[in-house]
Design a protein around this nucleic acid. Structure first.
Length: 699
RNA sequence: GCCACCUUAGCUCAGUGGUAGAGCAAUGCUUUCGUAAAGCAUAGGUCGUGGGUUCAAAUCCCACAGGUGGCUCCA
C-alpha cells in the first residue's frame, strides 16, 4: 500500500491495513509519540484506525510547548478538534457517573471548545461544575484509550433500540440515511470482549455511539474546563425535547487554557456594553423599556458623524432624502405583507380611542380583537417594522417616467420590532433601531448597476473604518418554507441578480438558503463581536414582490406602464448595531473624526488656566471637539484620565508653552510628541479629521 | 419565549441568619505640580421589586422585573 506524505514522498507498506501510528513510526519515534491522529485524504482519522487503501496521509500531532507551557505558534485546529471531541466524551462520562440516568444525545467539538446535549431531570447548575470537573479529572488520570469498534448498521441499530436511547437511534438513522455502511462506537477503555475470561471488570469502561475520531487516550487531555450550561432543543426544534447543553473547553496545556480564559476576560473588557457605559456613549433604562437605546451626547456624536459621512456619499450617488412617519395604518402593512407574515415580531397595533371604546362596549375579548384585526374588520396603526412601505408610497405619490429612473429614496428611518426578550443584546440586538435605509426603484436594465452601486457603498463604509474582518452571505430562499411571498420565477430572477452582484464583489461569499427576507434575496455583510457572535450589518436586497403588491409602475419609452424592481439597502444596517460593533472594533478608541472628544487641554497647574482657555478657544474655533481639564489634579493624573477616556490628543500646556505660544502634544497611541505651535497643531488636527483616519499630526 | 446563573453606593466588588463594607468615582480643603493615579476629610444604601418563613433576612422560600450566557428567532 502506498501512503503519500505531505512533502510528496511515498511510503510503501506491505501489510493490508496500515494505521496512522504505523506511518508515524516509520518516519520517526518522536513523531509517533506526538501523534494524535491523521488527516487521511482530507478526513480526520484515529491514530489506530486502519487505512484500507492508498491515501494521502498527514499526521496530526500534539503541539510543542514553549518554556511557559504554551503552545508554540498557532493552535492546530485538527489537533484541538480531536482533543475537544474526546473531552466531550470524558465530560459525558463524568456526568453519567454523577447522574447515571442522564441520557446522551449529541456532543460535538466547536471552534473554541465543545458541548454535550443531555437530558436529565436534575437541572445542572454552575455549582455542579466543580464536581463534573473532578470526575473528568479522574477519567483523564485513568489515561484510558479511546477504542473504536464498528457494527453493521442492522446489528448496530438493534443494539441502540435495545438501549432505548431515541436520540442515539435518531443519530444512527441519520448516519445510515447519509450512506453509512457501519455504525461506530468509541469505548473509553479497553474493547469489550465476548470472552468472559478476558473481561477485566476492574478497568472502568464507557462507550458512546460516535463517528469519531478521537485522541488515542484520555490522558492527552491536559487542561479542560466546564464553561456553562444552557438549554437547547432536539434538532433545534422548539416543539421537540429539551436538552441541557453543557459547554466546556479543552487544551493541550494548562497555560493554553489560562491564556484562553485571560483572552475571554480581555474580550469582556472590549465588550461594547462595558465600554459604552464606561465612556458614557449610551444607556438602556428598564423604565424606558428593554432593547430601547438612549444615545447619550457622546454616543450621539459618533452616530451623527457616521450619518454625515454616509450622507455625503448619498449625495454623490444621486440619492434623495425623505422623511416618513413612525406609524402607519395596518392596511399599509397588510398590503406589504409585514403584518400577516411577521405579526408576532411586531409591537401590537395601536387602535384609536373611539374604536376601542365601541368594541369594548360590545364586550369584545382580546382574542376576538386579534381575530378581527387579522380579518381587517378592525383597523389600527402599526409602529413600523420597516421603512419600505412608506418609501413605496413616496414613489407612488406621483406619476413616474422611465426618464426619472432610478429613483433612490434615503432616510435614517427608525423602526420597531418585538424581538424575543432572550435575544436582546446591548446595542446589537434591540427593539427600536434606526436604519440608514434607502429604497431604489429601478428598471430591469438598471438592476445590476444599481446593486453594484449599493455594494460599493457598503465596501466604502467597511474600508473607511478599517473593518476588513467580515464575511459576505448571499441569503436565498429556503425552498421548503412557505414564509416567502411571490412567484418562484421572480425569486429566481432576484436570486440570480444577487449572485451576479456577489461575484463581482471581489471578496469570497457563501450562498445560504433560508437566509432571504420574506420578499426577496439579499447580500449581507456579517461581522463577529468580541465574544464571537455574528451580526449582520450592511445589507442589499433585491425585491420583485413589493412593487407587485403595491402595483407600482412607471411609464416606459413605449408609453406603457412597467413594473419597477426595488432594491432595499442599508450600508450600516442599523445605527445601533453598527455603532455597537464599531465600539468593539476600536475598543472604544475611535479615530479622530469619530471621537466624541477629540482634544483635551491639560494645564499643568491653574496658573495656566488663561492660556489653556486661549488654546481651547482656538481648537473650538477650528471646529474641533475639545475640552480642558481644569481640575486640581497633577498632570500625570490628567493624562491618565484622558488616556482612559480614549481622547486622541492631549495638549499639555504650561509656562514654556505659554511663552512660546505652543502646545505639548501627547497622542493617545504614540505618547509624547513634543511641542508644536498652536496653529500648526490645529491645522494638522483639522486635516486628520477630514481624512477620516490617518494620523497626520506629527512634530 | 425556553434553561441556568446574576442583581448590594455612580462603577467594580466583599459580605451565607444577628448594628451594611472596601477600592475607584463624587464633593470640600490643602497642594500649584511638565507626560498613565498628590494628601487629608466628607458625603453617598428601603441590599432590583413585592410577598412569605423567622425573635431576627442582603443572606432562606415564592412570584415578578431587569441583566448575562446559550437555545430558538432575526422582514
Amino acid at each position: 500500500m502506498n501512503i503519500t506524505l505531505p512533502d510528496g514522498s511515498i511510503k510503501t507498506f506491505d501489510q493490508p491495513n496500515v494505521t496512522a501510528r504505523d506511518v508515524a513510526k516509520s518516519i520517526g519515534e518522536g513523531l509517533a509519540k506526538a501523534a494524535l491522529g491523521a488527516k487521511v485524504d482530507g478526513q480526520l482519522y484515529d491514530l489506530d484506525r486502519p487505512i484500507t487503501q492508498d491515501a494521502k496521509v498527514a499526521i496530526v500531532t500534539k503541539p510543542r510547548l514553549d518554556k511557559e507551557g504554551k503552545t508554540k505558534g498557532e493552535h492546530n485546529p485538527d489537533a484541538l478538534y480531536l482533543l475537544r471531541h474526546s473531552c466531550a466524551h470524558v465530560m459525558a462520562e463524568a456526568i453519567q457517573r454523577l447522574w447515571p440516568e442522564a441520557l446522551l444525545a449529541y456532543g460535538p467539538p466547536l471552534d473554541n471548545g465543545f458541548y454535550y446535549d443531555i437530558t436529565l431531570e436534575k437541572p445542572i447548575s454552575t455549582d455542579d461544575f466543580a464536581n463534573i470537573e473532578a470526575e473528568m479529572k479522574k477519567i483523564v488520570e485513568e489515561n484510558r484509550p479511546f477504542t473504536r469498534y464498528e457494527l453493521p448498521t442492522d446489528q448496530g441499530l438493534k443494539r441502540l433500540i435495545a438501549e432505548d436511547n431515541k436520540y442515539k437511534i435518531d443519530n444512527a438513522q441519520r448516519a445510515i440515511a447519509g450512506g453509512a455502511n457501519t455504525l461506530s462506537w468509541y469505548v473509553t477503555g479497553p474493547l469489550p470482549t465476548s470472552d468472559i475470561r478476558h473481561q477485566t471488570s476492574d478497568i472502568p469502561r464507557w462507550e458512546d455511539l460516535c463517528q469519531g475520531p478521537h485522541v488515542p487516550s484520555t490522558g492527552e487531555i491536559a487542561a479542560f474546563k466546564v464553561m456553562s450550561v444552557a438549554s437547547s432543543h432536539w434538532h433545534g426544534d422548539v416543539e421537540s425535547d429539551r436538552f441541557q447543553r453543557v459547554y466546556g473547553t479543552a487544551f493541550f496545556s494548562q497555560a493554553d487554557l489560562d491564556a484562553y480564559l485571560e483572552q475571554l476576560e480581555q474580550a469582556r473588557q472590549r465588550d461594547h456594553r462595558v465600554i459604552g457605559s464606561r465612556l458614557g456613549l449610551f444607556a438602556i433604562d428598564e423604565m424606558v423599556g428593554q432593547g430601547l437605546i438612549l444615545w447619550k451626547p457622546k454616543g450621539a456624536i459618533i452616530r451623527q458623524e457616521l450619518q454625515n459621512f454616509i450622507t455625503g456619499h448619498l449625495k454623490r450617488q444621486g440619492y434623495q432624502q425623505v422623511f416618513t412617519p413612525h406609524i402607519g395604518k395596518l392596511d399599509l402593512f397588510r398590503t406589504s405583507g409585514h403584518f400577516p407574515y411577521y405579526r408576532e415580531s411586531q409591537y401590537p397595533p395601536l387602535i384609536d380611542h373611539d374604536h376601542l371604546t365601541t368594541i369594548a362596549k360590545e364586550g369584545c375579548t382580546c382574542a376576538e380583537l386579534a381575530n378581527r384585526l387579522d380579518k381587517g374588520e378592525v383597523d389600527g396603526y402599526l409602529l413600523k417594522p420597516m421603512n419600505c412601505p412608506f418609501h413605496i408610497k413616496v414613489f407612488d405619490s406621483e406619476k413616474r417616467s422611465y426618464r426619472d429612473m432610478p429613483i433612490r429614496l434615503a432616510e435614517f428611518g427608525t423602526v420597531y420590532r418585538w424581538e424575543q426578550s432572550g435575544e436582546l443584546n446591548g446595542m446589537t440586538r434591540v427593539r427600536g433601531f434606526t436604519q440608514d435605509d434607502a429604497h431604489l426603484f429601478v428598471t430591469e436594465d438598471q438592476l445590476d448597476a444599481e446593486v453594484a452601486g449599493c455594494l460599493d457603498l457598503v465596501k466604502i463604509v467597511f474600508k473607511t473604518l478599517g473593518m476588513d474582518d467580515y464575511r459576505v452571505r448571499v441569503g436565498l430562499r429556503d425552498p421548503g418554507s412557505d414564509k416567502y411571498v411571490g412567484e418562484p420565477a421572480q425569486w429566481d430572477k432576484a436570486e440570480a441578480a444577487c449572485k451576479r452582484a456577489a461575484e463581482t464583489l471581489g471578496v469570497p461569499f457563501t450562498a445560504e438558503p433560508g437566509e432571504a427576507a420574506f420578499y426577496g434575496p439579499k447580500i449581507d455583510f456579517v461581522v463577529k463581536d468580541v465574544i464571537g457572535r455574528s451580526w449582520q450589518l450592511g445589507t442589499v436586497q433585491v425585491d420583485y414582490q413589493l412593487p407587485n403588491r403595491f402595483d407600482l409602475s412607471y411609464v416606459g419609452q413605449d408609453n406603457r406602464p412597467h413594473r419597477p424592481v426595488m432594491i432595499h439597502r442599508a450600508p450600516f444596517g442599523s445605527m445601533e448595531r453598527f455603532v455597537g460593533c464599531l465600539i468593539e472594533h476600536f475598543g472604544g478608541a475611535f479615530p479622530l473624526w469619530l471621537s466624541p472628544e477629540q482634544v483635551r487641554v491639560l494645564p499643568i497647574s491653574d496658573k495656566f488656566l488663561a492660556y489653556s482657555n486661549k488654546v481651547l478657544d482656538a481648537l473650538k474655533q477650528a471646529g474641533l471637539r475639545a475640552a480642558a481639564d481644569e481640575s486640581n489634579e497633577r498632570v500625570n493624573a490628567k493624562i491618565k484620565n484622558a488616556q482612559e477616556e480614549k481622547i486622541p490628543y492631549m495638549l499639555v500646556v504650561g509656562g514654556k508653552d505659554e511663552a512660546a505660544g505652543s502646545v505639548s502634544v501627547r497622542c493617545r497611541t504614540r505618547g509624547d510628541l513634543g511641542a508644536l505651535p498652536l496653529e500648526v497643531f490645529v491645522t494638522k488636527a483639522v486635516e486628520e479629521v477630514s481624512t477620516q483616519g490617518r494620523a497626520t499630526v506629527s512634530v
